[in-house]
Structures are given as C-alpha cells and as structure tokens.
C-alpha cells in the first residue's frame, strides 16, 4: 500500500547566513501509512517540534520534500492549502489558542475556514465534541469557563472537526495529571476509531509512546536515532538511555535483572508483559 505521507531527507536550517545558523533537523526520512499510530520521541531540542511543522507546510524545508499521497505539499499554493486541512496539527498547550465566544464556535473555526456548509459544520462540531467527551451544554459556554482538562479537550476538538487524515499532536498531555493524561489518550483513540485516521503522537515519554503506538521514531539532535516497532526500539534501551531519554521503570528493572544473569528479555516496556515474562520464567523454573 502506498504511504499516506512520506518525508524525504528533510533538513531545516534556522537563520541561514547569520552567526546563529543552526540545523534544527537534518536528513530526516520516514513514512506514515493510512490509519497507523506512530510515536515520535525525542527530548527538548531534538527537533521534534520543528519536524511536525513541516508535515502540514507551516515550515518549508531548506531541502528535502514532504509528499502527501505522492504529491509535494510545497509544490504550489493550492497543494499547501490542501495539506493544511488533510494534516491536522495540535500544538503544545493547545488550550491557549481558544478565542471564540462559545466552545461551539471555537470548534467550528477550522471547518469554517475549510469553507464547509453550515449543516456540515454543525454535524462536525457535534461529532468532534462527542469524540472528546464534551456535552451539549458545555458547547454553549465560553471556552474560558471550562476547567483545565476540558479546555484542552475543546482545543483538540477544534482540530478533530477538520477530520484530518493524519492527526499530529505535539505533547498533547504535557502538564496534566494522570487522570487528565488518560482522558486525552482516550480522546485520541476515539477519534482514531471513528475516522480511521493516522496519528503521529509526539512525546518525550517513552512510556506513553510505547503503550499506544504501532511504530516508534526516535529523534536525537535533529536526526533519526532509530525507528521500528516498540519491541525493536526497546531492544536498544541502553542506547536510548544514553541519548537522554527516559525509558520506563520496568524496562530499567529488566535491564538490571538481565545484567545480573537472569535470562529475561530486556526489551519489556509494559507492566503486563513484565508480569508474563516473570511468571513464564518462574513456572519454567529456569533459574
């Protein structure tokens, strides 16, 4: 199957020709298939925020291309505009971009810019609100009357309502407590289920990424350090830790046990699989 989006050798240089010149990302290549859930991991300064702004044409690469269904999104003004709507981008702390008088009108902002009909806008707003779990009553409130978690979800709905085929979220759970984090993950899952869209989930938490993603891309200093399914990526846990990433506590536990000569797979990254692994070993009596 042809990929939905392909990034080819993307390089972006800040302030070229000045003493502050710096390559934020260099030669990044990857592709995303329809309906895929991808985790993009990297610490601050790894270039992940710069990278995602290339995917819908907000930033133009210094060299390299972004192809959406095989078409270069920077080839023409129309192509860029189409990409803007097909690739939805949720920024960090998205609640700070709410501005309308009511939640309904704020969610409708994107669809309106797409030039959709009044009825279509209404149905999309309702659908998006349902995906993020906002009830009918809160749609009529001012966005500034919502609680912190609700604001974040209303902002997500604003992008959901554009029904992007690829939804890119930059640290969507930053600053939230465990309950809030779970709520946001549930919203993303619900959007994915009802639309079948692909998701690119940017985070610095290996733990969150590993739990939900089909595939992981790890960035370091503006370049791809490794990519693959979670098991493949976590088999290189030692390198990941060297790159300054936080691997889950169970992974560190299993690395420690493996280093003590216990025959465990060190590429475990969830409590569930850790539990299975330990029981298997205990029952098997291999120690």
């Amino acid at each position: 199957m042809a990929p939905l989006l392909t990034a080819e050798d993307l390089t972006y240089i800040y302030s070229p020709g000045t003493p502050f010149e710096k390559a934020a990302i260099k030669d990044i290549s990857f592709s995303i298939s329809k309906g895929e859930f991808i985790g993009l991991i990297g610490h601050t300064g790894s270039g992940k925020s710069t990278l995602v702004q290339h995917l819908n044409g907000l930033l133009k690469p210094s060299s390299g291309r972004v192809l959406l269904d095989g078409e270069d999104i920077n080839a023409s003004k129309e192509a860029s505009r189409r990409a803007r709507f097909r690739v939805g981008l949720v920024f960090q702390y998205p609640e700070y971009q709410l501005f309308e008088e009511t939640v309904f009108r704020d969610i409708a902002f994107g669809p309106k810019n797409m030039g959709l009909s009044e009825n279509e806008i209404k149905s999309r707003v309702r659908e998006a609100a349902a995906q993020v779990g906002l009830d009918e009553r809160s749609l009529e409130l001012s966005p500034f009357e919502l609680s912190g978690g609700q604001k974040r979800r209303a902002a997500l709905a604003g992008v959901f309502a554009m029904r992007p085929e690829l939804l890119v979220l930059d640290e969507p759970m930053a600053g939230l407590d465990p309950v809030g984090r779970e709520e946001i993950l549930a919203c993303i899952e619900s959007f994915r289920e009802s639309t079948g869209s692909a998701i690119l989930f940017v985070t610095h938490s290996m733990e969150d990424a590993a739990r939900v993603s089909d595939r992981l891309i790890v960035l370091k200093d503006g370049a791809v350090l490794t990519q693959g399914n979670p098991r493949e990526v976590f088999s290189q846990s030692a390198e990941l830790m060297k790159a300054g990433l936080d691997v889950p506590q169970v992974t560190r536990l299993f690395m420690e046990l493996a280093s003590r000569g216990i025959p465990l797979s060190p590429s475990v990254y969830t409590v569930e699989s850790a539990l299975e692994e330990i029981i298997r070993l205990k029952e098997g009596g291999q120690c």
Partner: peptide
Amino acid sequence: SAQKARGA
C-alpha cells in the same frame, strides 16, 4: 502557527 494549522 496554531491558528494557521486550523486554516486561518
């Protein structure tokens, strides 16, 4: 940037 991403 965020509003541009919503088509502004």
